[in-house]
């Protein structure tokens, strides 16, 4: 995470400013290093299994049954939550709710920090969120909270997440679940 500046905000608005870029195909981003996808997945699983209040923030691309892949991914997200003992909090849409969202039951990309603060979430996975809103939310979380963010992206990944893997489709998510099961066993959980 970025070092806080004199006014206790991150002096860097985005990870790109610090030279962090999205990983190339087949690779993952672990903090500011490009690593093999499996290494990133293993670290993501470890963080989810060891930090407080692990949560999966699932976005509209998986919440709604608009394609066969979305239906398959929804099942996998449930399985992932069980393996990681994680809570699921949906990002149902991107409308800025008035006066504010109920942070217990949902997260909104325009003020994701409310949900993270309210539930004391120290690690989270973003999955199924459209890239532009994931970018917004991850930047806010990066600057405003001490939550470790993991982005499982179906496209290029997100440099503003601390750990990101890209091109994630059902087979890749299944692979992550299997790795998580192994890590869980190793940790004796």
């Amino acid at each position: 995470m970025a070092t806080l500046g004199p006014y206790h905000f991150s002096p860097y608005p985005t990870a790109v400013v610090e030279g962090v870029l999205t990983p190339p195909p087949g690779k993952g981003l672990l903090y500011n290093e490009i690593v093999d996808e499996e290494v990133a997945m293993r670290e993501a699983a470890k963080q989810m299994l060891t930090r407080e209040n692990p949560t999966i923030f699932v976005g509209p691309l998986i919440i709604y049954a608009w394609s066969d892949e979305a239906k398959e991914n929804a099942k996998l997200v449930r399985e992932m939550a069980e393996v990681l003992n994680a809570k699921i909090i949906p990002m149902v849409d991107y409308r800025p709710k008035y006066p504010k969202i109920n942070p217990e039951v949902e997260i909104n990309p325009n003020h994701p920090n409310l949900t993270i603060w309210h539930n004391n979430i120290k690690v989270c996975i973003f999955i199924g969120v459209h890239c532009h809103f994931a970018n917004v939310a991850l930047k806010i979380i990066r600057a405003e909270t001490d939550c470790l963010t993991i982005a499982m992206c179906a496209k290029m990944g997100h440099e503003d997440a601390m750990i990101t893997v890209r091109d994630q489709h059902p087979d890749d998510i299944r692979k992550f679940i299997n790795i998580a099961k192994e890590v869980k066993k190793e940790l004796g959980k």
Binding site: V58, I62, I63, Y64, A65, W66, S67, A70, K71, A74, K75, V77, R78, I88, I89, P90, V92, N102, V105, E106
Partner: peptide
């Protein structure tokens, strides 16, 4: 279908 919530995630929806 974009209005249909996946069954697996229904219980988490507002």
């Amino acid at each position: 279908n974009i209005y249909k919530v996946n069954e697996e995630l229904r219980e988490f929806m507002p």
